[in-house]
Write a protein that binds this DNA or RNA. Structure first.
Length: 488
RNA sequence: GGCCCCAUAGUCUAGCGGUUAGGACGUUGCCCUCUCACGGCAGUAACACGGGUUCGAAUCCCGUUGGGGCUGCCA
């Protein structure tokens, strides 16, 4: 048996969307599971809509998900003369013919057939034509001559359904294989490329099932070995309709920008339509290890952002804070300050990572720390009836901060040291509270508000550590000032 | 319209002739707790419908309904 080889062949007419990403993933893990090869091919024969930036986006998005081509990436636009030689062959053997019907005429035919409630197909006007030299100088396309024997059908076994799908030839048009501009169409180029590059298994979207018989005819006419086919169901939007921009982010790059980790997207996408028992959390390596076409679902799946967010928060939680800092910096806008890769930032990131579903959200929660000063909001603060006693507490608390041992506030990247520091702050603070007969519960909120201006914040100890003595005392004073302002 | 495909909770799924129909997301309640989270525990909710086949069908067959795809000189 041949070594298994799969491919992902997108057209660079848009950013890589999650449906394509899932197809690429299926191809990649199937090849890898079987010790085979995965290749990428750019189907850029639609010159009108293909753009280089989309191609770059596709490659970069796949690379981000760790999906990398095992061979040089092919471009159909560079293989035009290869296709030509095969067209000649078909023409010579009478398996293809020139068609001079104008687009208007075809349109007319189609309308007529549709009006009669018939399938709009090419009527075969030029099928038996023997054009001379002069005629060939006029605009024409080349069509494949589909065998018309009564009852003739084309079939293939779909590996996902594990079932033969058969389509009668009368349902299939004499489809165009070379356009008027001499560029081959998808159905033609794809067959030649797959055959020539030795693709053994074609895993693609459900939307290609009706193309498959056409392609099989071409494989046979060209004398190529027909590969195996597996058609994966599509991803639908929350309303059960085909996924589109209406459903929010659809491109891989958008998910990256919104703070998703590639592990989460990969895990989500593979579980959308494939399963391994009750396993939910799967690394790429595990997916490759367990992957089997038998476990791919036949039905379409609705994309569910909630579950993706859950997986993303899972992977965020499992990461080292310094790794998170650099991931956040990677996706930060130019206008945003870069996070320092120091233990002060790491302390907060570490406590915030279980509170964030995306990297973007995590970064937002760091705003209070990144900003020079705090904006206090009377509305929020008035929800708590602070009085003179609270102001007095803050004064004492400030003294407590100042009294803290300077050795606690370490620098560098020492996470072990961080644990010790947090423990020291915790112990000192608890002593401070109990000596005065106070509890954490009754004092936490005012401290939180003083440090951040918000009702929600990272834990107090981490904030004391990360802000440091000076910024803590500054904020306490600023808050005290604000409090006296709203009292008057 | 024609052709093809699909059908277990709101969502993703396990199941492959005999199960109290399992897991996960979400959601609800409780516990933990300095806020918010995390975590733990508990609850919630499904075999689209109708016929067969069979001692027995979520599982096999047929039909209905519903959904999706294709019906381009796009891929």
């Amino acid at each position: 048996m041949d070594t298994i080889k799969t491919r992902f062949a997108p057209s660079p007419t848009g950013y890589l969307h999650i449906g394509g990403a899932r197809t690429a993933l299926f191809n990649y893990v199937y090849a890898k599971h079987n010790g085979g090869k995965f290749v990428l091919r750019i189907e850029d024969t639609d010159f009108e809509r293909s753009e280089k930036i989309f191609e770059e986006d596709i490659i970069e998005s796949l690379r981000w998900m760790s999906i990398i081509s095992d061979e040089e990436i092919l471009h159909q636009s560079e293989r035009l003369n290869i296709y030509n030689s095969y067209v000649e062959k078909l023409l010579k053997e009478g398996r293809a013919y020139y068609c001079f019907c104008s687009k208007d005429l075809l349109e007319e035919d189609r309308n007529k057939l549709t009006a009669e409630n018939k399938k709009p197909m090419y009527v075969g006007r030029c099928r038996e034509l023997k054009p001379g030299e002069e005629m060939l100088k006029t605009p024409h396309v080349i069509r494949f001559k589909v065998e018309r024997g009564t009852g003739s059908a084309t079939f293939f076994k779909d590996l996902i359904r594990n079932q033969i799908i058969s389509i009668e030839n009368k349902e299939i048009d004499d489809f165009v294989i070379v356009r008027e501009d001499g560029i081959p169409t998808y159905n033609f180029a794809v067959v030649i490329d797959d055959a020539l590059s030795g693709i053994t298994h074609v895993l693609r979207g459900d939307d290609h099932v009706s193309n498959t018989p056409k392609q099989i005819m071409l494989y046979n006419a060209l004398g190529f070995k027909v590969p195996e086919f597996a058609h994966v169901s599509m991803i639908l939007g929350s309303d059960g309709k085909r996924l589109s921009k209406r459903h929010g982010a659809t491109s891989v790059i958008q998910y990256k920008k919104e703070g998703f980790l590639p592990e989460a997207l990969v895990n989500y996408l593979i579980r959308l339509g494939w399963s391994h028992g009750n396993d939910e959390i799967l690394s790429l390596d595990e997916i490759i290890k367990f992957f089997d076409l038998k476990n791919i679902s036949k039905s379409a799946a609705i994309f569910n952002t909630e579950k993706l967010l859950w997986l993303n928060s899972h992977y965020i939680k499992s990461k080292d804070p310094f790794a998170l800092i650099s991931l956040i910096n990677d996706i930060s806008e130019d206008s945003q300050a870069r996070l320092n890769e120091d233990v002060k930032t790491a302390a907060l990131v570490d406590s915030l990572k279980s509170r964030s579903k995306t990297l973007v959200e995590l970064r937002q929660k760091l705003d209070f720390f990144l900003n020079k000063t705090v904006e206090y909001n009377a509305g929020v603060i008035n929800e708590f009836n602070f009085n003179q006693n609270d102001a007095a507490f803050l004064q004492v608390f400030k003294d407590f901060i100042i009294s803290l041992d300077d050795d606690i506030f370490i620098d560098g990247k020492n996470l072990e040291g961080l644990k010790v520091s947090i423990e020291s702050i915790k112990n000192a603070f608890n002593d401070f509270l109990s000596q005065n007969g106070w509890t954490m519960k009754e004092k936490a909120m005012i401290i939180r508000l003083a440090f951040t201006g918000e009702k929600v914040s990272p834990p107090i100890y981490e904030m004391i550590f990360s802000l440091g003595k000076e910024r803590c005392t500054e904020r306490i004073e600023a808050f005290l000032g604000f409090l006296s302002g709203i009292k008057n």
